Simulated assay, not measured.
Amino acid sequence: MSKYKILIADDHAMVRDGVKNLVSKNAELQVVGEAENGKQAIELFDTLQPDLMILDISMPDMNGMEVSKEILAKNPGANIVVLSMYEDGDYISRCIEYGVKGYVIKNESGSELDYAINSVLQGKNYFSRHVQDVIFRKYTESVSKKKPKDDLVKLTQREIEIVKLIADGLTSQQMADKLFISPRTVETHRANLMKKLSVKNAVELIKKAQQLELI
């Protein structure tokens, strides 16, 4: 039975030795090459066509993200697992965007890398629990930043009363009589509401107020 070919790319010899030691414990895996910089990693990948590459991000010549981007652009089905000290959400997101199938932080246990290798070779993605937490935090922050400004609209109690009366079809005079204020004050409130909710007419005003659950 042929073994899965593993290529290791890391500029630290001690890290490569540690990964080789881990890989050697699995009888189905075989390290076929080692790269100590980005350009060498691409050259060895093209030459050896490994079943999986374990790739560091911080390397000379080309960093791991550049390496993964170039390799996956030419080989969309390539199996790349990033093993890096970087746990920044932007680094992880870019790697995922390029098509990296696994990501493990270097200070995590060896079993995490083992799980990643086996999962990816089985056609799955594997991101360690810590990496998943980083991805989730980045996602929630992104959603929060993209929230429409409308969600932050705050209406006064009087403005809410005006909106409800507009929805009931009352005229400015009828609203003025009901609220014991002048028609001019009603019109001022209406204008402020249009501005706050970024709408142009009563129909849009009612619709937006309903969307924001103001009425």
Rank of each mutant, 00 (worst) to 15 (best):
V67S: 13
V67C: 02
S68I: 08
K69H: 10
K69Y: 07
E70P: 01
E70K: 02
I71F: 09
L72Q: 03
L72E: 01
L72I: 12
L72C: 01
A73S: 14
A73L: 08
N75Q: 06
P76R: 13
P76T: 13
P76S: 10
A78P: 04
N79E: 05
I80V: 05
I80H: 02
I80W: 02
I80E: 03
V81N: 10
V81M: 11
V81C: 09
V82Q: 08
V82E: 11
L83A: 05
L83T: 03
S84E: 08
M85L: 15
E87I: 12
E87K: 09
D88K: 11
G89Y: 09
G89K: 09
D90M: 00
D90Y: 09
D90A: 00
D90W: 00
Y91D: 02
Y91M: 04
I92H: 08
S93C: 00
S93P: 04
S93A: 13
C95L: 15
C95I: 13
C95S: 02
I96G: 07
E97P: 05
Y98V: 14
Y98Q: 15
Y98I: 06
Y98H: 05
G99M: 10
G99F: 07
V100L: 01
V100E: 03
V100Y: 04
V100T: 00
V100W: 07
K101D: 05
K101P: 05
K101F: 03
G102P: 05
G102I: 07
Y103S: 04
Y103E: 04
V104P: 10
V104Q: 13
K106R: 13
N107M: 08
N107F: 06
N107L: 11
N107T: 15
E108H: 12
E108I: 02
E108G: 08
S109C: 00
G110F: 11
G110P: 15
S111K: 14
E112I: 06
E112G: 05
L113V: 07
L113A: 06
L113P: 04
L113G: 04
L113F: 12
D114S: 15
D114K: 12
Y115F: 14
A116P: 08
A116I: 14
A116E: 12
